[in-house]
């Protein structure tokens, strides 16, 4: 069975390490916050100016002056802090944030990512994504392995305008967990019940399969 969006988030959450500051993008990445392993402490950074982002407020306690980068009402945890956008991106550019998790429309085997524009069709803008991918030491992309028509989104070369070049090292899709190195996707884990053959068929880019590929394990 291919993973649900929640399961993709859950698998990514297992990559988080104690004492990391983490920026979560909009969509599946936001769900990662629901699956943080109990034995570690991480702090979420929201690039609109908050460290220590907490869960959604209790109904009736929403504050228009306290939102995340997805413009959703949120809370701030004890020990959190607030700051302006220049300082926020100083944290990101200065590599004080250890991990960025974001979505993508396409990823290529050399680590390029495209997630902000479909020429002539969808032009929403890159927001903070270009700053994040250009600077983060660790980037995990959360995405569907194929588009709605079944075409692979893990490519030899991205067809859409790029967000960043040579930056993605890990990808978690609904089918697999892959690492990018040596100009190829390396298959590390399969989604439970998904065969290596299915993953090969769904991957347009060069896919390296070395030895027995284990199924993903979920620890929560």
């Amino acid at each position: 069975m291919a993973l649900s969006k929640q399961e993709i988030a859950q698998r990514i959450a297992q990559e988080l390490q104690d004492k990391w500051y983490v920026n979560l993008g909009i969509g599946i990445p936001t769900l990662v916050a629901n699956y943080i392993p109990k034995n570690i402490d991480v702090v979420f950074q929201s690039e609109n100016g908050m460290l220590g982002m907490g869960p959604f407020p209790i109904e009736g306690e929403e504050d228009a002056d306290l939102i995340n980068a997805g413009k959703q009402t949120v809370t701030i945890l004890k020990g959190g802090s607030l700051f302006d956008s220049a300082m926020s991106f100083a944290m990101i550019r200065g590599q004080h944030v250890q991990l960025t998790v974001l979505g993508a429309m396409e990823v290529s085997q050399n680590g390029d990512i495209a997630n902000w524009k479909i020429p002539g069709k969808m032009v929403k803008g890159m927001g903070g994504a270009m700053d994040l991918v250009a600077s983060a030491e660790n980037i995990i992309v959360a995405m569907m392995h194929t588009d709605k028509s079944g075409a692979s989104k893990l490519l030899k070369k991205c067809s859409l305008p790029l967000t960043g070049v040579n930056c993605v090292k890990k990808v978690v899709t609904n089918l697999a967990y892959l690492e990018i190195k040596n100009n190829a996707f390396y298959l590390i884990e399969r989604a439970p019940g998904v065969s290596v053959e299915e993953i090969i068929a769904a991957t347009e880019g060069t896919l390296i399969v070395e030895g027995e590929i284990p199924e993903m394990k979920f620890y929560l």
Binding site: P55, F56, P57, I58, E59, G60, E61, E62, A64, I67, G70, K71, Q72, T73, V74
Partner: peptide, 8 residues
């Protein structure tokens, strides 16, 4: 105005 009212 709140763009995305999300609550627990």
């Amino acid at each position: 105005r709140i763009e995305q009212r999300t609550v627990t």
